[in-house]
Design a protein around this nucleic acid. Sequence first.
RNA 1: GCCCCUGUGGCGGAAUUGGUAGACGCGGCAGACUCAAAAUCUGUUGGUGGCAACACCGUGCUGGUUCGAGUCCGGCCAGGGGCACCA
Length: 914
Amino acid sequence: MARYSFREIEAKWQARWAERGTFHARIDPGRPKYYVLEMFPYPSGRLHVGHVRNYAIGDVIARYKRAQGFNVLHPMGWDAFGLPAENAALAGGVHPADWTFENIRVMGEQLRLIGLSYDWDREIATCTPDYYRHEQKMFLDFLEAGLAYRKESVVNWDPVEHTVLANEQVIDGRGWRSGALVEQRRLPQWFLAITRYADSLLEALETLDRWPDRVRLMQQNWIGRSEGALMRFALAGRAAPDGDARTPLPDALRAGLPEAIEVFTTRPDTIAGASFLALSPDHPVSLSLAEDDPALAAFAGECRRLGTSEAALEKAEKRGYRTALAVRHPFEADRLLPVYVANFVLMGYGTGAVFGCPAHDQRDLDFARKYDLAVRPALWPADATPVDDDAVAALAPEDRARFEDGAGIAEIDGRRLFHVGATAFIGADGRRFAYDLACLGVPDLAVPTPLTVAEAKRAAITALEGRDLGEARIAFRLRDWGVSRQRYWGCPIPVIHCPNCGIVPVPESDLPVELPRDVDLSVAGNPLDHHPTWKHVACPKCGTAAIRETDTFDTFFESSWYFARFCSPDADTAFRRGDVDYWLPVDQYIGGIEHAVLHLLYSRFFMRALTDCGYADLAEPFAGLMTQGMVCHETYQAADGAWLFPEEITLDGAAGGGARRASDGTPVTVGRAEKMSKSRKNVVGLERVVETYGADTARLLLLSDSPPERDLDWTESGIEGAWRYLNRLWRLVAEEPPGDGAGTEASAPAALALRRATHRTIAGVGEDLDGFRLNRAVARIRELTNMLTDAQASGDAGAGLGAARREALAAIVQLLGPVVPHLAEELWERLGGTAPLSETPWPTADPALLQDDTVTVAVQVNGKLRATIALPRDAARETAEDQALADVAVRRAVGDRPVRKVVVVPNRIVNVVV
RNA sequence: GCCCCUGUGGCGGAAUUGGUAGACGCGGCAGACUCAAAAUCUGUUGGUGGCAACACCGUGCUGGUUCGAGUCCGGCCAGGGGCACCA
């Protein structure tokens, strides 16, 4: 049997779409717009089928929306700055620019093979001055608006890549690309003030109702808003080991230290229980003390080496270094608290200092037990009486043991006693607790008072503010975005350092600041810094010899606004206002879950910042988001442990059998399916698949085998199955006799049934595509195909069946159009389509054909299925009940038991209860 | 440690959101065509018992709500993802 010639067909239709400009997008205010965007790729080399899934999903949506009459924008470009280009240059002696543009050429050709409905006229590459000049201008505008600033800060330094990493790019204390242990260094860096938008970025998450909940939650956690209070603890003096002595602070020690240490807390209500203060090793006071205290300096060094990863900290013991300092309790000037430097306090959050309240914080409690610090409760269950350690120690051993439950409450001699032993007492929202807030000096709270946690927090904050000891404060986990990178292959930061004028922005007329081509990448560190001439310029203000900024932007800068550039790729500004007003926001954005926080959050920030700088008027760039799963493949390992490509092995017999190396027949270990990666060689090259089966077959498998958001296993049998189906469809059309009097009214029952199935499929596929159930949509279409085959096999050639068959075939071809566009176009033409399918409106279902006159109703006896009966649609309850009870199988199941009740759900089910 | 998600045949996955569990596909088995194979086509395929009609069991485990639970609620178990020792 002949197979269809995908090579010819795919080339033919790709050429025709190009000729006709089918996918060329232009503004048309008369039509609703729809902007479909897949996250643009980094041009790393060659595409494998894993990359293609992302684009295929977007292409289905784009083609579907276009057929529905939307004015679709579906562009593609290249996220072309990045470290791999420099690495490739080092390894292969190729210039990063040449390497990048060659990859863009190759990958562009590969993308074109797949028949994606892109408007290629809008293609952009972020490494061209034509693109990055606009972000240099943006940066100058941010600078003027105070959204960009420079500060010296402790940064994550990657010793292998010689670059600063964002906190987000440090994974388990290691660089996310190099895997090298990250060091801490202080460097002047450029920052973008994303924290200014923390509230807006958080609150607007609720409006993004077409984003996955998972991604919204991840962003919410990342922004990490918490309400609390800022309090000032006055530096007092040297604390004795018992935390209670009053040695005055020596002047020598006081020099260079602040009057007070500021602390952020979410639990100001527990202030009565404060028993120590803990500083981050990077806190200015810690640093200052460490200058004269080698032991402290050594301790701080150890803390930094521990890293900031959770795994490391989880295992690490909570440790502190007791300084010679003490602070006064804010409300009880006589009460002195010792000051520790502790490994569990982060400089990057709050103020880098915390007050320890052991009774109500587990970590503080562990710390207090370890260093023998006071544990003093500030709140306890209202029906209990607090007792101290000494009182508990005086109890009989069996009574003491009764405190071991989590709540720390024991009933002894008819009294409910409360004592914090090994478990801190956190309290809970909404309930009232007895609170010790006497220290606040508020007459109403002079004795233990029942309050909720929220009420007690308010009381504490009011007292703080009243005495000017602190105030309400909201803290965010989110930190400003450091954008400086000490790399070559990125966008130069357009400022000049002048010995007289300080930092001078590059005048707009001098933009772009172009990357020099002649750099020496073999020297470690920043190549721009080593360039003999590039950085030397005259100060634009005073003309003195000055130095260019040699850092370049984090490449997330480019991807934070590219979706806007696609609206006006040829504009001599970043984008034209009218264009983005029409096209943005992106209606459907598609990409990997790995970008759930960074790229998406930065883009949301950029849209706000650009709006504030007058570029646009929009907060949220992406109205809809879908995160697609990865493509996985089995791994193969030879006896010597070497990874093998799928094409290097042969499978033994059927599924579950072993595998051997094709070259020598030696056995191969088959590993479970994992994400396709070059290092494990479990990749399937795009060309090989397209040459063997064609683009449509590859697309069909990628779109039909799993729901888009889940991972998909690429298997040889899967691609065979897709290939078989497309050939079957091809034959169905080829063997269909030419129409005899199209439009003949289908009257025969078989024809009517087929027509009903066709229209149900049209309706169902529409719903599935709207809900991204692409696999379900394909399943429905295959179901209709099977029905069509059966109709053919039954030989029922009654009047009108031919027309019904052709209607079904046309529907199948149309519905498959977004999935297998080349084959669908060809079949559409063969079925007599007058215009190309890509220019034909989406089919609509005839509502009259969506409902059958008779329905199959399930009959249960005591909830167990016993029969199905055919009933007229919307039959009366009595009819349904009578017919159900008359059924032989139902009567047998009921037996001679009396029927107690009959539940009838119209058109669905009848349940007989006996 | 905290938060979130997911557990359905040999496999990928369906199930109108409380109403016929297993659509569609892969794989398997049997058959047709063929000298043979490939390709194609047909039938069959959750488990157990039975010649059969049929019966029983079955959506990670375990309780519950309901006429009825894969779906809702409680408690476990397993796998995956995220994270912030966040004061």
